[in-house]
Amino acid sequence: MRQAALPRPAALRRVRGDPDRECRWSGQLNEASLFQRIGGGDTIDRLVDGFYDRMERIEEARTIRAMHREDLEPSRSILKRYLTEWLGGPQAYSSERGHPRMRMRHMHVPIDSAARDAWLLCMRGALDETVSGEAERAAIYEAMAKLADWMRNTDDSPA
């Protein structure tokens, strides 16, 4: 005798557009996104502000600061929306700007290993300052390091 399939529990159904109820298909009930686990939009705001504040004041970031416009507010706003979505929060970036196409959007500036390292230095400091959970901080940094390395568009290997 064949048994009827049981319906999937409501807690495992993905609820789009509602970050408070969004679940991943991991098999765990109510698994929160990184966005939720780090504290949501307030933490993203502090993270991005800390990142750009470092870019403005530390000597090692001088070259990447020069790649930006004088007014950093538009860049801050874009990065806040991007990270919100990238970490599992509301679709604040793609609903306005479409697919991120991060590498294409940055091809107008030369990004070499030194630029990558300066960017990561600023981001590491901002993460250490704003994300209290060690596991979350490590997961975000690891993913950002891969993305930053992929963004390189200038060959800077020794001849």
Rank of each mutant, 00 (worst) to 15 (best):
Q3L: 15
Q3C: 14
A5C: 13
A5Y: 11
A11W: 01
L12P: 00
R13A: 11
R14L: 12
V15K: 15
V15C: 13
R16H: 15
G17C: 05
D18A: 05
D18E: 01
D20E: 01
D20G: 05
D20M: 07
R21N: 11
R21L: 11
E22S: 13
C23W: 02
R24D: 11
R24C: 09
W25C: 11
G27S: 10
R37M: 01
G39E: 02
G41V: 04
D42W: 08
T43Q: 02
T43V: 12
T43K: 04
T43F: 02
R46W: 04
L47P: 07
L47F: 11
L47D: 01
L47G: 02
V48A: 02
D49Y: 13
D53C: 07
R54N: 13
R54E: 11
M55L: 15
M55Y: 10
I58D: 04
I58K: 06
I58S: 08
E60N: 08
A61V: 06
R62F: 06
T63E: 08
I64V: 13
I64L: 11
I64W: 06
R65P: 00
H68E: 05
R69Q: 12
E70I: 06
E70F: 00
D71F: 08
L72Y: 02
L72T: 08
E73R: 00
P74W: 02
I78G: 04
K80E: 04
K80D: 05
Y82S: 12
E85T: 07
W86V: 09
L87M: 09
G89I: 00
P90L: 03
P90R: 04
Q91R: 15
Y93R: 02
Y93M: 07
Y93V: 05
S94P: 10
S94E: 13
S94M: 12
H99T: 03
P100F: 03
R101F: 02
R103F: 04
M104Y: 03
M104P: 01
R105N: 10
R105E: 07
H106Q: 09
H106M: 08
V109G: 01
A114Q: 14
A115K: 07
A115C: 09
A115L: 05
W119V: 01
L121S: 00
L121G: 05
C122E: 04
C122P: 06
M123A: 00
M123L: 08
R124D: 10
R124G: 05
R124M: 08
R124L: 06
T130P: 03
S132I: 13
E134I: 13
A135E: 15
A135R: 14
A138V: 07
A138R: 11
E142H: 12
A145P: 09
K146V: 13
K146T: 14
L147W: 01
W150R: 07
W150H: 10
M151D: 02
M151R: 03
N153Q: 13
T154A: 14
D156H: 04
S157D: 11
P158E: 14
A159C: 12
